[in-house]
Design a protein around this nucleic acid. Sequence first.
DNA 1: TCGTATT
Length: 382
Amino acid sequence: MVTILSTVEAQAPSAAGPSGCGPVPVPVPVVAVPGPGVAAALPNGAPPGPPPVADDSKTNLIVNYLPQSMSQEELRSLFGSLGDIESCKLVRDKVTGQSLGYGFVNYVEAGDADRAIGALNGLKLQTKTIKVSYARPSSASIRDANLYVSGLPKAMGQKEMEQLFSQYGRIITSRILVDQVTGVSRGVGFIRFDKRVEAEEAVRGLHGQKPLGAAEPITVKFANTPGQKSGGALLSLCPGARRYGALHPPPQRFRLDNLLNVAYGVKSPLSLLPRFSPLAIEAVPALAGVGLGTPGPGWCIFVYNLAPEADESVLWQLFGPFGAVTNVKVIRDFATNKCKGFGFVTMTNYEEAAMAIASLNGYRLGDRVLQVSFKTTKQHKA
DNA sequence: TCGTATT
């Protein structure tokens, strides 16, 4: 484990991840670094060129679309399974302390950052699909670059909207809101530009304009910032409610086939899943975190019949969709570093853990059938 | 008709 160090501020310029939402292929961004124009020696004899700013453009990741309940420690646990972490920060609301749903992970090694993108981008955690990409260098010029667009033709898709806006700058993300039932566009979307000046230009150029063939003009304005409310009464401040847990949203109805096929590309019909009931013996709320499971809060789950190549990200992918996962561990042979066939997962909430066990026990992962259960306590091991 | 991407 690595001690948390202060985040390095300065970064060399780099490209950001691709535009678009959700799990998308992440090309390794390479952008030429605009160097200083002059290379003259300094009076003090110091070497010419830029000051020795730390270049974390290849180690520092931004993680978006994190579940609301995910803590910084869980973020560290998730990404720490891929390599040593230099720093890790979950961004929170200054007033309430609530997660803003994104964070930064800076690895020691660039190769680990690259692997983390490959392993964790698109990971499903509860209701979210996280996005992992290289962080752009922090700068005031990239803030407040998010636009709200309404009045879009219902037939306009994300791609078309991007085409419309891309003439004004580089698009970081875009989204069109759709009716949850019908899936039809609500005519409302968001465009985040790389630079605020690009967004400003887009407002000037597109607000009140009619897209090609459209009947109505579109509205283009800056989107609300996270602090602003959009509708109902403002939630009362809850200074003490920084820790999730008690007020966890109920588990969703999971589509295992979707959730797991995305992660593994395997076919596994729900009909193959065992359906034993998650027994009630240990289901005494007051006893959560004791008895079964580990020291520390949560429910420890034993996972057996993992492949030798299994790593922590596999366990995150398997259990993350079911609810709050605080820790995962693959047990490896010391000499070979291969998985010894089993591992452990800690989940915060009993109901979610029980659902994960009920769903994943007997699940076929590749050519293996997993055995999943609550970890049994081996007492008195001195 | 406003989900949450720059520490």
